[in-house]
């Protein structure tokens, strides 16, 4: 996978460090992108995110990146959204008033917390259940009940249920992985989920390799 160039979008609301360190394990070329002009000659896009919806969207709009991301994915460039980066792919979110990138139909809503045990944010290691109907490639080699590290207060609700590749349970079903053609996203942080988490990056890079 040595010749791949992966763009990591820097919209100033993300902890880029661990994402980049995880990618470096696979010895690929990482390009940090803060503007439309930098988003050229790349084989894949990673949209990370920690923080809240509107500030991240506002920066993406200011950086003129929304349409570029959309156009590149429409023309087949693989994209991986992580945590807030997953929620930014939706049409909108209860957390903000701006529109999302809209690559996935649906919305993001606050996690429901009507029991004492449901603390928000949903923070910690939780296991996933894989949706057999999705035939996920990003979850290749990952088993039902494998654990991943989550930190979030909002959950994605894709309109089309078959785009949910896996979910987790936290007093309710929460979408954990989205997969739709060349668009992938995880609500958890694969770069903080140990060895099994690194597999997500490996699968993403393999998908790019096959498509090249």
């Amino acid at each position: 996978m040595n010749n791949q160039k992966i763009a990591v979008i820097d919209h100033k609301c993300a902890n880029l460090h661990s994402v980049i360190k995880a990618l470096e394990i696979f010895k690929i070329d990482v390009k940090i992108c803060t503007s439309k002009t930098e988003l050229k000659d790349i084989d894949g896009i990673i949209l990370p995110g920690v923080g809240s919806f509107d500030p991240a969207m506002k920066n993406l709009i200011k950086q003129d990146l929304v349409d570029s991301i959309k156009n590149l994915t429409f023309s087949g460039t693989p994209l991986l959204g992580i945590c807030l980066g997953m929620q930014l792919l939706m049409e909108n979110s209860e957390e903000g008033s701006l529109n999302g990138i809209g690559l996935i139909n649906g919305t993001a809503k606050m996690i429901e917390s009507n029991e004492e045990d449901i603390k928000i944010p949903h923070m910690g290691w939780n296991n996933i259940e894989i949706n057999d109907n999705n035939n996920s490639r990003i979850l290749n080699g990952i088993k039902n009940n494998d654990y991943f590290y989550f930190v979030h207060s909002y959950k994605c609700i894709p309109t089309n249920n078959s785009e949910v590749a896996a979910f987790t349970k936290y007093g309710q079903k929460i979408c954990a992985v989205i997969e739709k053609n060349n668009v992938f996203a995880t609500q958890f942080h694969p770069e903080k989920s140990g060895i099994v988490g690194l597999k997500i990056y490996q699968n993403f890079l393999s998908f790019i390799e096959i498509g090249k």
Partner: peptide
């Protein structure tokens, strides 16, 4: 008693 059938988050 922690009911394992209703796990929320694992203890760290």
């Amino acid at each position: 008693i922690i009911n394992k059938g209703n796990i929320l988050l694992t203890k760290r």
